[in-house]
Amino acid sequence: MEPTIFAQGLRKYYGDVPALDGFDLTVPAGTVCALLGPNGAGKTTAVRIFSTLLRPDAGRAEVAGCDVTARAAEVRRRIGLVGQHAAIDEILSGRQNLELFGRLYHLGRRGARNRADELLERFGLADSGGNAVSTYSGGMRRRLDVASSLILAPSVLFLDEPTTGLDPRGRAEVWDMVRQLVNTGTTVLLTTQYLDEADQLAGQIAVLNSGRVIAEGTPDKLKARIGGDRIEIVVDEGQDLAVAGAALAAVAGGRLEIDTRCRRLSAPVADRRRALYDAVRALDVAGVRTEDVAIRRPTLDDVFLHLTGQSREESLA
């Protein structure tokens, strides 16, 4: 299938600092791709190039079959952009914002008003639509921001860290919205710092570090590469470590890691639900008293540790 978002050898420098340094990406139509990376990886820079706000210094980028520099106007007709920071007029009300953007999308006065009503309703802002945006909470602003970028029902949507700063409910709402959009055929490129979020939403994850993609694939493939879920046990007494290790080895596959100082054991597991149940039973049978038993999902830190051999903090330092 024709890729909807395509980049080859993108480079962008700020002075001597490379923000993108040979960035390649291919996203097929109708799919969700997550750009996963720590602060300063170049996520925003990539999104700004795709959404025609920034010219690359080198390389090629296409959105919906149009080159982003040569045919910027056509790209703009097909995209929606939710930037990292809400881009809305603080003085106007939510409704006025949507009506203004609707008119600028050439829906006409009446069309813009109707579209604003629909979107306010859909994003749970119908009651506060008349209030000034400066009185909105962070989550309400984010929803209005997302609504503003959906006025034309874009075929490609860019979301730059759409859930950063939202509470769990707000995150769940954004996730639902992304899933709904994908059901209607929209192609989505989202950036995030959370592996968990990429895992929930994306069919394809590209891990970005220092301006280039260092790993790419489906969430499962990527997680398999870094070892997937792990079970972690903290025992009450240090002398129980050996017994606990034996019990755990019987139920969890793979290499066991033992941290004697913290009285902690961990091992990779294939089936998270089964593993927890089995481990608790095995430990009980072996008579080991535990302080903590948990299944831990890999985090962005684990991904980094695995892919670059250094943790995020180290790579930033």
Binding site: A73, L81, I88, Y105, H106
Partner: peptide, 17 residues
């Protein structure tokens, strides 16, 4: 500062407007 300029620039509106 509020990103409104960027929103306008990412929209298919007349840039002179």
């Amino acid at each position: 500062a509020k990103g409104v300029t960027d929103r306008f620039r990412s929209m298919p509106m007349a840039s002179s407007a």
